[in-house]
Design a protein around this nucleic acid. Structure first.
Lengths: 195, 195
DNA sequence: GAGGCTGATGACACGGTGTGTCGTCAAGTA
DNA sequence: TACTTGACGACACACCGTGTCATCAGCCTC
């Protein structure tokens, strides 16, 4: 006989999400989550650093994905091309099946200041990964920093736009579209990519 | 005879900053701060929403400054020129006398994850102010969003660079320099401003 | 298969955060 | 003098997050 039901982390995750949707994030306490999952409060904090972290589980792998973007980028591309092509080809496909989940998740995050803070911090971790990538490509420090900011901007804006759309387009398509809008608003030269 | 010494908020602010420098942010408790300021714990939370907010007091006025940037921007300028000129002429002068204070403040913020989260959230409030400004200038939604992101990037990067420098340059000079670097890394057309 | 090890969980205590509520009292106002 | 307004003290309290130790199923080893 098993002493505990398996999959504690996943049960906590589902219980937490259900409660966040039912009654709001701030109004949900950790004891409520663990009661629904059949565990103790202490166990919750063994799986998640804090209450907010439930909504960001599994995002730890994204920096590695960013690293792969730079590993696979052609040598001659401009910084902007690296970002747009990398986001569209490497990053975006990882999100395509998650439109539904990410939409409800987004609604929860936007309902709470603390969650928005955490989300911005997660994006800044991605920015640091991109910064390393641009440094390795030989960009000067200031330019690498700026390129990293632009990368995260394009990712963030593209994801937001994609989630606002009911369905239809892929995230990759939105990324390319957002990239064009970026070139337009900054007066940048058109893509030099291997179109 | 006065019942309480005046300037409770400022006393709390000074006591908190001193303690943060002496023993670190996380290691400092609110009761420690209020004891040093000669007040009670409850009173601390009447002046600051939470412990972190001590380090962001007085920044509530920045969105209004951003609004002024757009109110004073010449009609024909490109989005990038609006940002660079506005930051250099309107925003930067407000910081010039604060290099010393902002440096120690920055050191504290960088020492704590929670503080970095809060700082990013404050920047995103500025971004929303810039977004309204670009919308009012008639930019399409996507382009306004991207321009707002770029604005905050230039502000954030410029401020960081300025604080890293010992002294010498004004923040406005760093802003213009960062703007040039941005044009370089994104392949943008040079400034069309009233040089 | 007996013993030992490991890893996840329960149980308990505890300091710190942030809020609700009520009482107190100086200062301003009529 | 009487009333009102703030700012603060005092107290209680729920929740957050952590440290610590006991427990016990499953696995490994000999």
């Amino acid at each position: 006989m098993v002493r505990w039901e398996p999959g504690a982390a996943e049960r906590l995750h589902r219980a937490a999400l259900d409660l966040f949707v039912e009654q709001g994030f701030a109004e949900t306490t950790v004891p409520q989550i663990t009661a629904r999952a059949g565990l103790t409060t202490r166990t919750f904090f063994r799986h998640f650093a804090d209450k907010r972290e439930v909504l960001f589980a599994g995002e730890d792998e994204l920096p590695a994905v960013v690293a792969r973007v730079f590993a696979e980028a052609a040598p001659g591309l401009s910084p902007l091309d690296v970002v747009v092509e990398g986001l569209a080809d490497v990053v975006a496909p990882r999100f395509d099946g998650l439109h539904g989940y990410l939409t409800t998740r987004q609604r929860i995050v936007e309902s709470d200041e603390g969650l928005r803070e955490r989300e911005l911090r997660k994006l800044s971790v991605l920015r640091e990964a991109a910064l390393r990538g641009f440094r390795d490509r030989g960009l000067a420090e200031v330019e690498a920093v700026l390129a990293a900011h632009v990368s995260v901007t394009l990712f963030d804006v593209s994801l937001s736009r994609w989630l606002e759309e009911d369905a239809g387009r892929t995230l990759a398509a939105v990324v390319r579209d957002t990239g064009e809008a970026f070139r337009s608003v900054t007066g940048s030269a058109p893509a030099t990519g291997t179109a």
